[in-house]
Structures are given as C-alpha cells and as structure tokens.
Simulated scan of single mutants.
Amino acid sequence: MTVDAHHHVWDLSVRDQDWIPEDSPLRRTFTVADLAPEARAAGVDRTVLVQTVTVPEETPEFLALAAGHDLIAGVVGWVDLTRPDIADELARLRDVPGGDHLKGIRHQVQGEPDPEWLLRPDVRRGLAAVAAAGLVYDLVVLPRQLPACARVAAALPELTFVLDHLGKPPIASGALDRWSADLGALAALPNTVAKLSGLVTEADPAAWKVDDLRPYTLTALDAFGPHRLMFGSDWPVCTLAATYAEVTDSARELLGGLGEQERAEVFAGTATRVYGL
C-alpha cells in the first residue's frame, strides 16, 4: 500500500487561489478526477488532502470531497488558530458531512512576517485546542522559521507537529548546513514528524536531478528515521517541475537503500499512524 500524504485540489470557478501568479500553469482547476488516474498509475491507494487558502469555507468543502471519494482518506484543513471559540469550531467541523475525515489543521505560517508567529500566546492557545481535539498540526514554513517550530513543539508536547516539505530546504542553492542543524533540532523532539514532499520545486524546476534531492532526503532520514517520515507528492504544485509519476519514482529511488519494512513506513505506515487513516 502507498499513501500520498500531501496533495491539493482547487476549483477556480468556486474560489480564486490568490497565491498563484497570473501567468502560472497552476492557474487552472485541479480536481480529484484529475488526480485519481495518476495516483492509481503510480500505485497510490490513499491520500491526504491539504488546505490551500485561509478561508473557513474550504475545509467543509474538502471534508465533503473526502466523503465522496474513496481515494481521500484524510483532510488537513484550516481554522483561525486565534479565534476565541476555536474548540467549538473544531467540534463543528467534525459534525459536517465527511467530518470524520478531519485529521489535522494547517496555516500558511510561511506567509507570516513574524518569524516567531507560532510562539504568540493566542496562536499557542489555538494549537493546544488542536491537540485537545485529537488532531495534528501541519507546519508549512520557511527555513528561517524552523527554530520557532522547535520551540513551540517543545512547549506543546501533547501535539504532534508534521513538517511539510522538510521545511523547504534551499536545494537550488545547494546550501545544507544551517537547514540541517535547524531540522535536527526539530527532529530531536519526539512529537515531530516530517513529509518527504515538495522537494522538486525547491530544486531547479527546469533542471533538477534525483541526486540534487539526495543530501536533503538523507539528512531527513538521519534526523527523523523512516518511522517519522512520510511521502507526499505535493500535486499539483509539483507539476511546475515534475509529473506525479516522476515525483513518486524519484522518492522510491531515493529510498531504495532502505529495507522493505522501512520503505513501507515512509510510503504508508507513518501517515496511516500519524493521521489515523
């Protein structure tokens, strides 16, 4: 079995994706029907659908999608972590159609100008509510925000933090040391997990090679181990640099040196366990 622990969908007729440049090939609708044949061809059995925009309407829509598609096993949605009634909002989402598919929450921390946004008292209160609801929290951050991730994860040991895209390492520049040290500090905390996802678009999108990704993948494997790493395609964002098949094939090549059981953890076991799929 293979789980794709990170992908998106969006319908531009329903809602704009204002983060997509006007001239980008991503500026079109991507649906589950577009994903399904590519996932099947790559041997992917189940997926986790992850939020794209910070609007409250998106999460119920994603939960309804999950209820109607066997491919989607879980949803990482969005709520405003700073709202005073966040516990009530999380409970409400559990009651909407498909609410049992809600597995985690995410916010575009990468877009916050404050590198310590995660450490704000109102945000930490919201994160504690996420933990109390039995959900996990996905971190989409830039490398400079990794130290704050480690500090908040240490302060909230009851919450599992899932680092998306390995914290967006600077693959295109080849820089490794600073990111590696900060990743290691986060991985030293037992309540942290990371996604082997989004790497092809952090490399040179037009000329990346599997070997470009190898030092970052091996660093993450050394830091987290296969039992705390999970594969994700980051489709359709990955299509800026690679097809769905190329992303899955490159991950399998990068992990080819692991034993069968260890590969099974990265490609299914970790995501199934962490997200409760």
Rank of each mutant, 00 (worst) to 15 (best):
A132V: 12
P121D: 12
V96C: 10
I105P: 05
Q110E: 01
G104V: 11
L93N: 04
A132F: 13
P121F: 02
G126Y: 06
V136C: 11
G104W: 03
L127G: 11
A128F: 11
V130P: 02
D95R: 15
R106M: 00
H101L: 06
A132Q: 14
R92Y: 10
G111Y: 00
R106P: 01
L127H: 10
P115W: 00
H101A: 15
L93W: 07
G126V: 11
P97M: 09
G111K: 05
V96A: 03
G126T: 06
D114G: 07
V96L: 02
E112Q: 12
L102K: 12
R92L: 10
V123T: 02
A132N: 14
A91D: 07
L127W: 13
L102W: 06
A129S: 07
L127R: 05
R124H: 12
P97W: 13
V136E: 05
R92V: 06
L135Y: 04
L118I: 00
R94W: 14
A128P: 04
G111I: 00
V123Y: 01
D122P: 04
L119K: 07
R94T: 09
G99E: 02
L102A: 15
P115N: 11
I105V: 08
R125H: 08
P115S: 08
E112T: 09
G104L: 08
L118W: 02
I105Q: 13
Q108N: 11
R94P: 06
D114L: 09
P115G: 03
L119V: 04
P97A: 07
P97V: 15
R94I: 10
L118D: 03
R120W: 08
R124V: 03
R124W: 02
R92A: 13
A131E: 06
G111D: 14
G98L: 13
L93K: 08
L93A: 02
V109D: 00
R120T: 07
H107D: 09
V130D: 12
V130K: 11
R124A: 14
V123M: 01
H107M: 11
H101C: 13
L118C: 05
R94D: 10
A132I: 02
L135V: 11
K103D: 13
Q110C: 01
K103A: 13
A132Y: 14
G98S: 14
V136D: 08
R94C: 11
P113M: 07
V109K: 04
L127F: 13
D122V: 03
A133Q: 05
K103Q: 12
A91Q: 08
P115M: 08
R94N: 09
W117Y: 12
R94A: 14
G134Y: 12
P121K: 08
L119D: 01
Q110V: 05
G111M: 02
E112G: 02
D114S: 08
L93V: 03
V96I: 15
A131D: 03
R94H: 15
A128Y: 10
A133R: 12
V96M: 07
A128M: 13
I105M: 10
A129Y: 00
W117L: 06
R106G: 11
R124I: 06
Q108Y: 00
V130C: 08
G104F: 01
E116G: 07
K103R: 15
H107Y: 13
E112S: 04
